[in-house]
Design a binder for these strands. Structure first.
Lengths: 187, 187, 187, 187
DNA sequence: CATGAATGAGATTTCATTCAT
DNA sequence: CATGAATGAAATCTCATTCAT
């Protein structure tokens, strides 16, 4: 959530919108400039290259997502609650920030290796909560399998909603979270 | 699995390799030509445009995947078996044809709308098996949620293996398939 | 030698440094601004264009060089002495003001025609001394050939020293000056 | 001396002409393309970058110059003759290939450090001849000083002729060469 | 006087596509 | 069928200069 929209922030916002809509390579500096309402050259006062925008944006979205999950995690008083809150926060973030969420995934897909350069990664929170549940004997499968079920399912739900195949309903986050909990603790 | 490699097939193979490695937009006609060992102009004897390669390739990979799932489906004698066989085939296909699998996902990610143009889609088999399980009362959640768990989890497993986070083990396909079955039927 | 460094003078100093290091076209207004520690816009309070800096600087360096040679010339009591003092002053100037000397040459190289716009040119002093020596019958070759030997040799010595091929030694100016005198008067 | 003008050669020729006239940075790819009569993009089939043209051209001109000096050197039967032939060849090359000669100097001026990357440098021949003369006791000054006189004088003569200050006359090369020999052997 | 954002023209480079051979 | 040179449009980036504050 940028403060007063400085040009820098407007460039980031426009880039996020366009990148998540059309892809990174498919978005030109001209696209970004005209979305912001400035000239291409002006962008270079704020960023040294297109790549810097791409990376700044990932760090920014990733950090936001991390914070949201982190706060959810802190609110839970026991493992089950933390799991449910984190899963809900995950979905809610994806619904409220579809561009950021899509962009994060897109970046993972194309720049997989670079991802490790960043310090706070959302999946770290997910793994923390899963490890706790495993530690207490509630989840019995390998942490990586549990991670795949957790993240894979939620991302897919997002895609189905975004593509209009499922309609987003009231209380969906809670329902899916519990579904995930039951699925994982039954294994 | 191309037969005697005609130039056309070699172009498709090279394209698949490069597209899945670097992305579609990131791959140039020159890249493809030099991977095949011909010149750029020669490609246009076989395809009218880069886009035609992209679409031909999707149809080809998608159909292959569909056939694999379809055959697995046919072999099962009851719902549970069909489910397990389809899930195993899904994973096996992704491990044996990582480029094709990655390309299919990549195409979905960037050309979402175009996907519906194609007749045989892998997810139709998955939905068929899920609908049966729902029909028999074995799975009790919405088909779309079940689809999300099924496809999301398996895709994620593939990504974790490809990125080296999980090591691929003997019998992994069976294990994950049963995990999915238990997870979905427990809901 | 700038007095109390006004911004204007600091701009000229910075420009001289950068121009002589990297070349004129290769140096941007931003480079100059950041070397001075001001912003690009501020430069335009002092100069109307980059080209004005370029020309002001040439006039400034050229005049300085001219003065140095001129003073040397005045100190000599006979032709031989004047020749030696001018040659020494020439070399000394190049060693003490490598940036200015390099810049003068660079300007000659790229803006040859513009050079004639300026009133006081260093080579006028050199020609004066050579003409005297020719007048007295001490040098017997065409003045232009003598000029070529004089200026060519000294510039080359400078380049060899600056590039580290010759080490600058105590008394070098005197030695080279006498070498030149002997060479030219022997012809 | 390029054979049949292939596009590659025409690009090099055009570049040499423009670089030596206007400078490297001052010459655009568009300038080169339109001089050759092709589009900018076409240049990139023959060279990967402007810089590659710049470097290829230096290697080419430098090698040519080296060969010319080398051949002159081989023809001389004693030190004095070799000296005179090399000096004449030096001047003749500069008059016959003013663009190449100017370009070589220009490159030295701006890319001094890179010059050492190249194997055959014209000055190596000059140094060889000077060292011989020093070895035989004919020249008594340091080789670097002799080099400065030799190269500096000849380059200056070229500049004076090119700028129209001296007119080029029949037999000038011989005259200047002997002038140089007398000057250096008198020291 | 100075700032710093912005402009606009232009530079280098990329690339799908065409075409003569 | 294939080559490889060329096109032409567009992309990224640069930079002298202007201008509101």
């Amino acid at each position: 959530m940028p403060r007063r929209s400085s040009t820098r922030t407007r460039i980031l916002d426009a880039s996020l919108k366009l990148f998540s809509e059309k892809g990174i390579k498919e978005t030109t500096m001209r696209d970004i400039a005209s979305e912001v309402g400035i000239t291409e050259g002006a962008i270079y006062r704020h960023f040294t290259s297109k790549d810097q925008i791409v990376r700044t944006l990932f760090a920014y979205c990733s950090e936001q997502f991390y914070q949201v999950l982190s706060e959810a995690y802190e609110k839970g008083e026991n493992v089950r609650q933390r799991f449910l809150l984190v899963a809900q926060a995950f979905l809610r973030f994806s619904f409220n920030n579809p561009e950021a969420f899509r962009y994060i995934n897109l970046f993972h897909y194309f720049r997989g290796e670079e991802v490790t350069e960043y310090t706070h990664l959302p999946k770290d929170i997910v793994l923390k909560v899963l490890d706790e549940a495993i530690g207490e004997g509630l989840i019995k499968v390998r942490r990586e399998y549990a991670l795949a079920v957790f993240v894979g399912t939620l991302e897919r739900i997002f895609l189905l909603v975004v593509s209009g195949i499922i309609e987003k309903e009231e209380g969906m986050e809670e329902e899916i979270s519990q579904l995930l909990w039951r699925a994982l603790t039954s294994l």
